[in-house]
Amino acid sequence: MKAWLVVGMLIIVGLIWWYEWSRLEREYKKEKAAVAILLCLAMLLGVILMVNPDLPGPTQAVDRLFRPFGKMLEK
């Protein structure tokens, strides 16, 4: 079941890539690289969250990181 979700996500990302890539001109190499990198990162994050949906969110990670500093400031 999850494999079909990944395949569907690949198709959607491919369509987004095709649409954005065709709109950018040949001179815009940095912009094309940025589009490719961001789409790859989004795809990677999407697959990771499909495989393991119980991962903590970014707000929980920030809370864990800064909780000791908050305790130091309260004292």
Results as ranks from 00 to 15, higher is better:
residue 1 M to T: 02
residue 1 M to L: 10
residue 2 K to W: 11
residue 3 A to E: 15
residue 3 A to Q: 15
residue 5 L to V: 15
residue 8 G to Y: 01
residue 9 M to F: 14
residue 11 I to V: 13
residue 12 I to T: 14
residue 14 G to L: 09
residue 16 I to Q: 10
residue 17 W to G: 05
residue 18 W to G: 07
residue 19 Y to P: 02
residue 20 E to D: 12
residue 22 S to A: 11
residue 22 S to I: 04
residue 22 S to N: 09
residue 23 R to M: 12
residue 24 L to D: 03
residue 24 L to T: 12
residue 24 L to M: 12
residue 25 E to L: 08
residue 26 R to G: 00
residue 27 E to H: 07
residue 29 K to R: 15
residue 29 K to T: 04
residue 29 K to Q: 07
residue 30 K to Q: 07
residue 30 K to W: 02
residue 31 E to K: 09
residue 31 E to P: 01
residue 33 A to S: 06
residue 33 A to C: 05
residue 34 A to F: 04
residue 36 A to L: 13
residue 37 I to R: 09
residue 39 L to A: 06
residue 40 C to A: 15
residue 40 C to F: 10
residue 40 C to M: 06
residue 42 A to H: 04
residue 43 M to G: 04
residue 43 M to F: 15
residue 44 L to E: 08
residue 44 L to G: 09
residue 45 L to T: 14
residue 47 V to N: 01
residue 47 V to C: 14
residue 48 I to Y: 03
residue 48 I to S: 10
residue 48 I to H: 02
residue 48 I to Q: 05
residue 48 I to P: 00
residue 49 L to M: 13
residue 50 M to H: 00
residue 51 V to P: 00
residue 51 V to T: 06
residue 54 D to T: 02
residue 56 P to F: 04
residue 57 G to Q: 01
residue 58 P to I: 07
residue 58 P to H: 01
residue 58 P to A: 12
residue 59 T to K: 04
residue 61 A to Q: 02
residue 62 V to L: 14
residue 62 V to S: 12
residue 62 V to Y: 10
residue 64 R to W: 11
residue 64 R to P: 00
residue 65 L to G: 03
residue 66 F to I: 07
residue 66 F to L: 07
residue 67 R to T: 15
residue 69 F to Y: 15
residue 70 G to K: 04
residue 72 M to W: 07
residue 74 E to A: 15
residue 74 E to T: 13
residue 74 E to R: 08
residue 75 K to R: 14
